[in-house]
Amino acid sequence: MIAVTLGPTGTYSHRASRAVADEIEFRQSVTEIVAAVASGEYDRGIVPVENSIEGSVTESLDAVAEYDVAVVKEIVTPIRHALLAQRPEVETVASHSQALAQCRSYLESEYPDASLEAVTSTARGVERAREDPTVAGIGHPGNAGDDLEVLAADIQDQTSNATRFFVLAPVEERSEAGGKTSLIVYPDANYPGLLLELLEPFAERDINLTRVESRPSGERLGDYVFHIDVAAGLYEERTRNAIADLESIAELGWVRRLGSYDTEHVVE
Rank of each mutant, 00 (worst) to 15 (best):
128 R>W: 01
51 N>Y: 10
151 L>I: 08
135 V>F: 04
128 R>S: 09
250 A>G: 04
100 L>H: 11
76 V>T: 11
92 T>K: 03
239 T>L: 04
149 E>K: 14
239 T>Q: 07
20 V>L: 03
266 V>N: 09
130 R>T: 12
147 D>I: 15
67 Y>I: 15
57 V>T: 00
44 R>D: 02
41 E>N: 02
118 A>G: 08
18 R>G: 06
173 E>R: 08
114 A>S: 00
25 E>H: 12
90 V>R: 06
147 D>Q: 14
215 R>W: 10
73 K>A: 11
237 E>M: 13
226 F>Q: 07
58 T>E: 14
219 E>F: 14
153 A>V: 05
179 G>Y: 12
203 A>T: 07
201 P>G: 10
38 A>Q: 11
158 Q>W: 04
253 G>C: 00
79 I>F: 00
101 A>F: 11
144 A>V: 04
50 E>Y: 15
98 Q>D: 01
137 G>C: 01
63 A>V: 03
51 N>W: 08
182 S>V: 13
75 I>P: 01
76 V>P: 11
147 D>H: 01
158 Q>C: 13
58 T>R: 11
70 A>R: 01
108 E>M: 04
214 S>D: 02
198 L>W: 13
9 T>L: 14
47 V>M: 12
31 T>S: 14
72 V>Y: 02
233 G>R: 05
139 G>T: 06
200 E>D: 15
141 P>E: 14
184 I>M: 09
142 G>M: 01
210 T>Q: 01
68 D>C: 02
